[in-house]
């Protein structure tokens, strides 16, 4: 099966700053993909490029095998829930469902009505009077009732309280289970993603730092702790993601396909959050230099 989203050397520049640069990525189909990164990393830019709200400055991107935003291509088959889940303040819930029906040939009215009924939303209520959680649910309903093959969500839960957050993610997972769409979901909170995602893309400093299935990422990343080591003598297949040293002890995060055999190190499992943080730190401070640490 072809990738739901494929990017090659993708870049977007605003005036003089690159919001996203040299992004090469292939997102496999049928997954719930978490896009994680610090604020300003380019997550929104990447997702806007994916749904055709922006035009790339460099490289190319293809979504569901077509150019984003084109009507013959993915526009009708991609559902999008934008950051802060915008809705029309002056329109009622029912108006929004009509909006969805008018704007989408594939609109599924039954799905929309059922979701609204299940959420307990009053159809005559104006969107301006909805709570943040209800508005997010309304936006998700619009995206789901479109019967998308790919559902893209940009920080949908960032502004929600913990309860609304859980309900939203639950609703999302139900919808995915029911309709079988691929999902790309961005967040700067790993905890949210860990609960729902099976594939992760770490975006930091406007570049993709790492991408892969979460199981696989967890299986190939390890934390090594041991007495301080002056010299970096790791096997060539072990890539150091981050390194920190105290006077007596060195702690490394390494990526490797093969098991770590060196008895110097005690090897620990790495949580997803720590894994993401290691990549973010590397993006922020550059690749770790063991040599410089040694001279201290």
């Amino acid at each position: 099966m072809t990738a739901v989203l494929e990017a090659n050397g993708l870049g977007k520049r605003y005036r003089h700053t690159w919001a996203l640069s040299d992004c090469t990525l292939a997102v496999p189909p049928g997954k719930v993909v978490g896009l994680v990164g610090p604020n300003g990393a380019g997550k929104t830019t990447l997702l806007h490029l994916a749904v055709g709200l922006l035009k790339p400055t460099a490289g190319w991107i293809s979504v569901l095998g077509g150019r984003p935003g084109s009507i013959s291509g993915p526009l009708a088959r991609v559902g999008f829930v934008a950051q802060d889940t915008p809705t029309y303040a002056g329109l009622s819930v029912a108006d929004h469902l009509r909006f969805g029906a008018w704007m989408n040939a594939r609109w599924d009215r039954t799905v929309a009505d059922q979701r609204i009924a299940r959420l307990g939303l009053e159809p005559s209520q104006k969107a301006a009077d909805l709570s943040g959680g209800q508005r997010a649910q309304l936006a998700l309903t619009l995206a789901v009732a479109k019967r998308p093959e790919l559902l893209v969500l940009d920080e949908p839960v960032a502004s929600l309280d913990p309860l609304a957050r859980r309900e939203f993610l639950q609703g999302l997972m139900e919808a995915v289970a029911e309709h079988g769409a691929s999902v790309i979901l961005s967040s700067h909170l790993v905890a949210d993603l860990e609960r729902v995602c099976d594939h992760l893309v770490v975006l930091a400093d406007s570049r993709v730092q790492v991408a892969g299935d979460i199981d696989e990422l967890l299986a190939t990343h390890h934390r090594l702790t041991g007495a301080r080591r002056d010299r970096c003598a790791l096997p060539s297949d072990q890539e150091v993601i981050s390194a920190s040293h105290t006077d007596r002890q060195s702690t490394l995060v390494v990526r490797t396909e093969s098991p770590v055999l060196d008895p110097w190190w005690s090897v620990e499992e790495l949580g997803l959050e720590d894994l993401v943080l290691a990549y973010m730190a590397r993006a922020a401070h550059g690749a770790p230099r063991l040599q410089r640490e040694r001279r201290r």
């Binding site: 806007h48 749904v51 055709g52 709200l53 935003g69 084109s70 009507i71 526009l75 009708a76 991609v78 559902g79 999008f80 934008a82 950051q83 802060d84 915008p86 809705t87 029309y88 303040a89 909006f99 969805g100 704007m103 989408n104 040939a105 594939r106 609109w107 936006a139 619009l142 479109k146």
Partner: peptide, 15 residues
């Protein structure tokens, strides 16, 4: 201004 263009332009109708 209100961000609803992100809703309107990602339905099944081109910008």
């Amino acid at each position: 201004e209100t961000g609803t263009f992100r809703l309107a332009w990602t339905q099944g109708v081109t910008k």
